[in-house]
Amino acid sequence: MELLLFGKTGWGDELIVATIMTLAVSVTAMLIGFIFALIFTPLKLSKNKLFNLIANFYTTIIRGVPELLVIYLFFFGGSSAIMFVASIFGYNDYIEINAFFTGAFSIGIISGAYSTEVFRGAIQSIDKGQFEASNVLGFNKVLRFYKIILPQMLRLSIPNLSNVWQITLKDTSLISVTGLVEIMRQSYIAAGSTRDPLLFYTVAAILYLILTFLSMKIINRLEIKYNKGY
């Protein structure tokens, strides 16, 4: 048990820092995912066949290919892609991109595909009358989206977004393969140097359980709060 104490001989403080890292990556990935979702949801709902095709291509591929493969693509392909762009501008040295950014970006792309589907479903379940009423009142498209569709869409998508959050949180464990020190990586290091993998992986599992438990509590509160008027 003394292995879990704080200070130089224990791994307690390292594990807490790693937990914060996991949270930071998950939140960043979720936000990057939102950006992707806000780009691809309109494409998916648009009447243009080409836009539909692009958005479906994105969501189908990302949701049909293992997360680990996507992470490998960005981990191995990310720096060479950036170096290629840099070489056009005459910079030829080796560039290594930050493990945090690669991880958050690859998980973000994955969570974006799921968020896109959630937002699409939410918008499609908004009553048609809302769109018609805003047309009658003379809202333009941008204003209609921000003032009428977006607030309702967010409320309707909270339950499904909570699933996406859980998936994202669990997917961050896969970034450990890129060397970013989050819960999984830290447990791996600790297990290697103390030869006690059972203890540290069990602690990792408990830390993930605590994170999922707490986030479920918070999301349930949010859901109650935003459903007050209904």
Binding site: K170, D171, S173, L174, M184, P197, A204, Y208
Partner: peptide, 10 residues
């Protein structure tokens, strides 16, 4: 509630 990776490693 826990990642599959943790389960395999345990």
């Amino acid at each position: 509630g826990t990642p599959l990776l943790v389960q395999i490693f345990i």
